[in-house]
């Protein structure tokens, strides 16, 4: 009796463990089964490289959205990476314990704030501010700044733990050779933590590419390739949310195909991440 129970529970644990595999497969199947026919009908090149998105006349080209996602993500990285990395250096090496006790929960809060709140803040503060400053309120720049702020906690947390994992002897060795504390960190500790820091940045890329609600609220969502950083932009994620509510037929399938393209992007980013993690272990 006891033996049967043991075996049964072992099977249950095994089945539960396979659920996550099942769902990855299901997500792939559903996205591609619904998205690929649309891509086939539109034509893969027309779909991926077409610069016009006009559902009303059945023209579906997602190039503006791909470019939009790339622009906004790059902008977020330009803003978020230096700020996050330097903050991580401060937290890992230079921060007095008393200050750490304040900043640490603040960064947890930053990570926990829902993206709608960031979006709302962007809408009521950042957009008017940018309109005054540059003339374009909802723009690539505004979305980049907001996303740059949003990826900060990810970049900070991962880089900080990577910096902390570097043996103290690296730091002390550089100090003993006469380097200043700053030089020791930047030329001895930071290179040793390179893979971990890169992993943090890649995670940040993933977060920026996948961010939806905040971007919708501050990016303007025009489905055209932005001419400058002050013009409006629509990302892949925004494309789905903005139109899914009323789409039907081929239009709807084209939106699901957009999600499939987004999914492939994220898979590539994940692949990069696991390569970085493997390097970190060696």
């Amino acid at each position: 009796m006891q033996k049967i129970l043991e075996m049964a529970m072992k099977m249950i644990f095994l089945i539960a463990a396979c659920v996550s595999i099942l769902f990855v497969i299901l997500i792939c199947v559903f996205l591609f089964a619904n998205g690929l026919p649309a891509i086939g009908e539109i034509g893969p090149l027309e779909f991926l490289l077409g610069t016009h998105w006009k559902p009303s006349s059945d023209i579906y080209g997602i190039a503006p959205m791909i470019v939009g996602s790339v622009y906004v993500t790059a902008g977020a990285l330009i803003i978020g990476t230096p700020l996050g990395l330097l903050t991580a250096v401060y937290l890992a090496r230079f921060c007095p314990k008393r200050i750490y006790k304040v900043i640490d929960p603040a960064i947890s809060l930053m990570a926990g704030i829902p993206s709608v709140i960031y979006g709302f803040f962007g809408l009521v503060v950042l957009v008017p501010f940018m309109r005054e400053l540059t003339g374009g309120g909802k723009s690539v720049l505004t979305a980049s700044v907001l996303l740059g702020i949003m990826i900060l906690p990810t970049v900070i947390r991962v880089s900080e733990s990577a910096l902390r994992a570097v043996p103290q002897s690296y730091y002390e060795g550089a100090l003993a050779l006469g380097a200043s504390p700053e030089r020791s960190v930047f030329f001895s500790v930071l290179p040793a933590a390179k893979s971990g820091v890169l992993a943090g940045i890649v995670l940040g890329i993933g977060r920026a590419v996948g961010e939806t609600m905040a971007v919708i609220m501050v990016a303007g969502n025009q489905a055209i390739i932005p001419e400058s950083i002050t013009s409006g932009v629509r990302t892949l994620t925004a494309n789905i949310v903005v139109e899914m509510g009323y789409a039907s037929g081929l239009h709807r399938q084209a939106l699901i195909a957009t999600a499939a393209v987004l999914f492939v992007f994220i898979l590539l980013i994940n692949l990069l991440l696991s390569l970085l993690k493997r390097r970190q272990k060696i």
Binding site: A17, C18, S20, I21, F23, V24, L26, I27, F30, L31, N34, G206, V209, G210, E211, T212, T237, I240, V241, M244, L255, I256, A259, L262, F263, I266, L267, I269, N270, L273, S274
Partner: peptide, 22 residues
């Protein structure tokens, strides 16, 4: 299983939304 979990962790919420809808 680990790979699947890592993949799930990286998928953006809107993709979950579309999947859940379908």
């Amino acid at each position: 299983i680990r790979m699947a979990a890592e993949t799930l962790a990286g998928i953006p919420s809107i993709v979950y939304g579309i999947f859940g809808m379908m």
